[in-house]
Design a protein around this nucleic acid. Structure first.
Lengths: 362, 362
DNA sequence: CGCAGGCTGGCAAGCGGTTGCCAAATGTTG
DNA sequence: CAACATTTGGCAACCGCTTGCCAGCCTGCG
């Protein structure tokens, strides 16, 4: 019908209708002070009548700025990003920028390919939990301003959670509940966050005169948590801290299936405070990252960069974490030397345990 | 640092280096057959050496095609969209398109504003569960090809789940378990999906000689489900179907708190099969929508539209749904005329119930 | 009254590609 | 070998907007 017919009006149409030169129209919109107020007003009126709307593409060509930024996340499916996306979106909109979201689907290659396409379209990029190598990231950063989120890369400004403090709180909490030995269920080996979390845990237990040991790495998913449970059964502790909530959830499920009770027999703490954390049974005690603030801060800092600001220092911007205590942690039962699931562990399912161990240590 | 120095090479640079005209370079990339194979190869090599990459913005200006599409969803936070996003992304990438994701944050106004900005940048738009009015949607559709997802709008092609069949399966399932009366917990009044689900439920119970009644509307969130529980307590049935999983989860929690056991006392069925559905306790029986396929189909159909295809008919493309039976549904306990939670409801916690009711009906 | 300087608005040259049209070169056919 | 068709590459005019530079005009000041 009458759809393809009407091409949208250009500054030339407006210029003709208003009886001025196209450059004047352009300036009326882009450089308010540069044109006489009355003239500008007249142009504005005429433009409105014609339904003129400046074409961002055409504007971008000569200026080189698109007013778009890109947020790349490693996995849209991971609820961890929900609030980050929201925060980033809010900051972008607030500054008049359009944000394009790209899902890397946990693949460094896909991430790279998507970036390849997007890099020339945007004024800046936020890389959240990038799966690319440090050097690949630096490569990108050479072409456009980049902020990495939840990771530290030399020479590239970043925004992270205060993992040390968060971990410290978790350990203190467990300590107050009488636990002395903590098992850390590790996430992806390549993960920067995993590294700092484990390091922080070691420091915390040292200071608090407790003990920690580490198993893994495992996939940072529910399935990964399930896999970890088998290994945990071989060296049970009364308290466990998992790399993230997804793993903690998987762990609890597997533990429950194996006959252990959470939190009575074993306390479990996760990281991230994802949406599902409070839905599962028992509700998960977890270290909440300031997700919304992270997305927001990342974008704000990015936009500052695009305006030419140089980062004051190369140290990551660190945002405070918070411990959310729910139902998956409880007092250690001191007098019970051989709990039900401990029994299960030594005799019950040796085959399963060894299988998973092989998979776990790769 | 040597960052701002190097401007990326253009076709002119390549042309000079290869000793041909810029138009030939352009054609070598855009119109493969139009140029001699050898020449094209040489150009390609030179371009690779120079690190030339075609600038999508510059290309978009004369052609009017950006190779970008936009996916607008009503709420990134809602896990319902996870797989839709994935499917859409996959279809877009496969076709060489870049997809930009926009979150409307459940606000028709924000959706509109974001669209305002994006419409001139993309070749087409997928509106998933749009919160805008039909007429606003048609307005957009007049400017660019549009596909609406999970909704039907006259004159705009759409992709939806086969709600009737899905509902039918749910009702049959409940019928087989001996339930005779079903309560439907309604979602947003304005929701197209809610309308068809309730209608389908009525038809199904009619044919199967069962009974249905409806309560609501409530927010399509966990909180909404919690609110609904209070109302449900006033007219208890042994089976409940909720508008979506989030509400079903909230309902189950509130029911459990109130002393009812799920599924022993009341069976609950949700819709959508979101990620958390299998994590909660009891795991949720739900009608699974073919989320990935929906996203994929929507984008594919959209791209077909951009290539000039006219939709064959204006009837929505309907994709099959599937009932996933988990642990939240069970046989009706026939001999128990006054179940525990029925008792609870009339005497146990009237205060709590009435408080929630007030909150629920707002 | 003459002139420096601030305002305004127009001209025109891009930004990096695309593409209709033309001409030279090469291939085909009678 | 001439006439004609087919490739192949170049020229140049856009696409819609920005912006450096220039000129006309109005003020204010000495």
């Amino acid at each position: 019908m009458a759809d393809a017919a009407a091409k949208s009006p250009t500054i030339y149409d407006v210029a003709r209708a208003a009886g001025v030169a196209s450059s004047t129209v352009s300036r009326a919109f882009a450089r308010p002070g540069r044109v006489n107020a009355e003239t500008a007003e007249r142009i504005r009126v005429v433009a409105a009548e014609l339904g003129y709307r400046t074409n961002p593409l055409a504007r971008a060509l000569p200026t080189g700025r698109t007013s778009m930024i890109s947020l790349v996340i490693s996995d849209v499916t991971n609820p961890f990003y929900n609030e980050i996306i929201r925060g980033a979106q809010a900051a972008a909109t607030e500054a008049g920028y359009t944000m394009m979201l790209t899902d890397a689907q946990e693949s460094g290659a896909k991430e790279r390919e998507a970036l390849e396409r997007a890099v020339s379209l945007v004024d800046g990029i936020v890389l959240a939990t990038s799966r690319m190598s440090d050097s690949a990231i630096r490569m990108i950063a050479k072409q456009r301003p980049v902020i990495v989120l939840n990771r530290a890369v030399a020479d590239v400004p970043s925004v992270v959670t205060d993992n040390p403090r968060g971990m410290r709180r978790a350990v203190e909490h467990l300590g107050e509940l009488g636990h002395e030995r903590i098992t850390y269920v590790a996430g992806p080996e390549a993960s920067w966050a995993d590294g700092t979390r484990w390091r922080s845990l070691r420091e915390a237990v040292h200071e608090l005169d407790m003990h920690a040991h580490r198993i893994g790495p495992y996939e940072p998913t529910v399935a990964g948590g399930v896999a970890a449970a088998a290994e945990l059964a071989r060296h049970p502790t009364s308290a466990v801290i998992a790399y993230n909530d997804l793993m903690a959830i998987g762990l609890i499920r597997a533990l429950t299936v194996a006959g252990a009770r959470v939190p009575e027999d074993v306390s479990v703490v996760g990281f991230d405070n994802i949406f599902a954390a409070e839905l599962v049974t028992p509700a998960l005690t977890t270290v909440a990252a300031p997700l919304h603030a992270m997305g927001q801060t990342a974008v704000r800092n990015l936009l500052a960069l695009t305006r030419g600001a140089r980062p004051t220092s190369h140290a990551p911007v660190s945002l405070p974490a918070q411990l959310v205590v729910r139902a998956s942690t409880a007092h250690r039962r001191r007098n019970n030397t051989s709990p039900a699931w401990g029994t299960t562990k030594v005799s019950g399912s040796p085959a399963r345990a060894s299988t998973s161990t092989a998979a776990g240590s790769r």
